[in-house]
Amino acid sequence: MRTLMLVFCLMLGGCAAGVEDYQGSQPQLKLEQFFNGKVIAHGMFQDYHNKVIKRFTVVVEGHWQGDTGTLDEDFTYSDGSKQRRVWTLKKLPDGHYQGTAGDVIGTAKGKAVGLAFQWSYTLKLTLDDGSTMNVGMDDWMYQLDAKHLMNRTTMHKFGLPVGEVTLFFEKQ
């Protein structure tokens, strides 16, 4: 029975959508266009029980020079706390991107295809008690139209889901 369950789980994993599934979809997401200038997002973090733990607003100022972009993100949480993250992004050939930020371990790597962008990275997450925990981030963005983008991120530790972040961006 255990073997059957393992085979079933592996088969389901193979059914997950990949970024290539969005080939030809419109509007085409180009990070260097959407995140150029001011973008405002509203979002929430849910724990592994789907309970909303935090809500937040983030103001993003994006600037690109050639294939290199900077995204300066200022977060304001519902409890009044604040956080800042500054991304340095690099556009690579064939829709690939890579990025770094102060609380990202190593380099984020991803790809944009059609209306979708997916990338993965490890985030050094600061917890409410001040301690930190490294979590894997599986980040998916979908451009809805010229001014709106939806972001859904699954967070995991040791391969197990620990939370989810949902954001809705509006280009100003």
Rank of each mutant, 00 (worst) to 15 (best):
T3S: 13
D129E: 08
E73R: 11
G136I: 00
Q118W: 04
F56T: 01
K147L: 05
H96T: 01
K30E: 10
Y22D: 03
N134L: 08
A116C: 13
A116P: 02
L160S: 14
E20I: 03
Q28Y: 06
F169K: 01
N50M: 13
M137G: 13
D129G: 04
L29F: 11
I105N: 04
V59D: 09
K111Q: 15
T153Q: 05
D103C: 05
N134M: 10
C9T: 09
G37K: 10
D128N: 08
K124W: 15
K54I: 08
A108N: 00
K82D: 03
V104K: 02
R85T: 09
K124M: 13
D47E: 09
R55H: 15
T122H: 12
G110H: 01
G43S: 07
G159M: 11
Q33H: 14
G13W: 10
F56M: 07
D138E: 14
E73V: 05
F34T: 00
K54A: 03
V39M: 02
S131G: 07
D79P: 06
V7D: 08
V58F: 02
D139Y: 05
A101F: 12
K38M: 09
Y142P: 01
K171P: 02
P27N: 03
V39A: 01
L10Q: 10
R2D: 14
G24M: 08
L92S: 08
G13D: 09
D74G: 01
K147I: 01
G37M: 11
M11F: 14
H156D: 13
M133R: 15
Q26S: 08
L144R: 12
V59N: 07
T76V: 15
T57C: 03
Y121D: 01
A108M: 10
Y22N: 09
G102K: 15
S25L: 04
G80A: 08
L10E: 09
V104D: 02
A108H: 01
L125N: 04
W140S: 00
R55E: 15
K38Y: 09
T132Q: 13
D129N: 15
R84F: 05
L89F: 06
L92I: 04
G69I: 04
V86M: 08
Q143N: 07
S131H: 15
S81Q: 13
Q23D: 14
E73D: 09
A41W: 11
M1D: 14
W119E: 02
D103M: 10
D129S: 05
A16S: 13
G95E: 09
L123P: 02
L144D: 10
M150H: 12
K157N: 12
P93S: 11
